[in-house]
Design a protein around this nucleic acid. Structure first.
Lengths: 196, 196
DNA sequence: AAATATATCGAGACAGTCTCGAGTTTTCCA
DNA sequence: TGGAAAACTCGAGACTGTCTCGATATATTT
């Protein structure tokens, strides 16, 4: 559940496990503070570990991100399912979109990673992204069936909107992300005139 | 007009001018090919110039970007003014937004630079961004006055939408940028129900 | 063609990514 | 409990990139 203690894949030596966890903890702090392009060398330094050790545990920056995010992503997908029986399909959709944007905002630069992971099957985040996308699809389908969003709105549209809005918010000193999300969601609505 | 031959600000020695232009040409090619975070060292190498020379002409990556983009940006602002008397204020706005997105798409990573430049007064790109924003403001104001977009839509919203859509398009293998732009613009319209 | 102004060069300081073999711990099991 | 095998850590080093600066070279001016 908590991102601080994800399970390594197998039995590990005690010292290895300790280092693994310290690295992850430092990475979480560093990423939260400085965004997803923080120096891996510095994470190793903070965790008081040689950088070779870091690379032993996490061969790439992406591997580190994946270890950090997996559980959170699954939680987001679960939230989507919980919102499925919302009395207003559109409002359920909107609420989930806001939750998803908040999730994307925890680390600067995360939106790009998520946009790429959803298309990249070699990414370990891929499965989690697919689950998130599926959750979005459920909400979109219901809102579409209820006639509350346009028939051509898709789950990838929602996914892209959320990530793009999160991105915009990161670039701006004003809460531009929320504004964009609101406008985008309204653009999804049936009441919006379809342009030729 | 053409980005290949922008005017250096003053008289330059002949060799300096030659290097300046070669650097710019290589930078344009490299940026178009690899995006805005291309290696400056490599640009110097390609232009057959020591990297100190590159830094002499363009102290920062941003300075290089500005030299590359200034004219284009001003052209975009001009396009905005031309579209001002469009018979349908909304359509004029939409047409300009599409042109602006196309502009942002010429170099990968450019959207982020533009979002930052508009808020950063020390950026060489700042003035150009302000001009673009002003052009957007003209179009938005007219559409607002005509009752075709919601009264709370601002030029920064439009600017953010364009850049965010361009960003989304870069991340995706499908034309997600255009879709997002369309939905966002529809979200701007008066006909979209305002959510509580 | 000398004097002056202007540029270029490239070494070097520094930071980051990533690899690899030597050396160190832990674990296991006799 | 002790020692071999397995697992892991270490950190030097190869590489790339950013950026600076003084020595050197080249254009321009008179």
């Amino acid at each position: 559940m908590d991102i601080g203690t994800p399970a390594p894949r197998r039995r590990m030596r005690a010292d290895a496990r300790r280092n693994y966890e310290r690295l992850l903890a430092e990475a979480a702090a560093a990423f939260a503070e400085h965004g997803a392009d923080f120096s891996l060398e510095e994470i190793a330094r903070r965790a008081r570990v040689a950088n070779g050790t870091l690379y032993g545990h996490f061969p790439t920056r992406r591997a580190l991100l994946e270890a950090l995010l997996g559980d959170r992503m699954r939680a987001l997908a679960a939230t989507g399912e919980e919102l499925l029986p919302h009395p207003s399909p559109f409002d359920g959709l909107a609420a989930w979109a806001r939750a998803a944007m908040a999730h994307t905002t925890i680390y600067r630069g995360l939106g790009a990673a998520l946009m790429q992971a959803v298309e990249d099957e070699t990414s370990e985040l891929h499965t989690a992204c697919k689950a998130v996308l599926a959750a979005g699809e459920g909400l979109v389908a219901r809102a579409r069936a209820a006639g509350e969003v346009r028939p051509d709105v898709t789950a990838p549209d929602l996914y892209a909107l959320v990530n793009a809005a999160a991105w915009a918010g990161e670039q701006s000193s004003i809460p531009q992300g929320e504004r964009l999300l609101t406008f985008g969601l309204d653009g999804f609505r049936t009441s919006a005139t379809t342009r030729g």
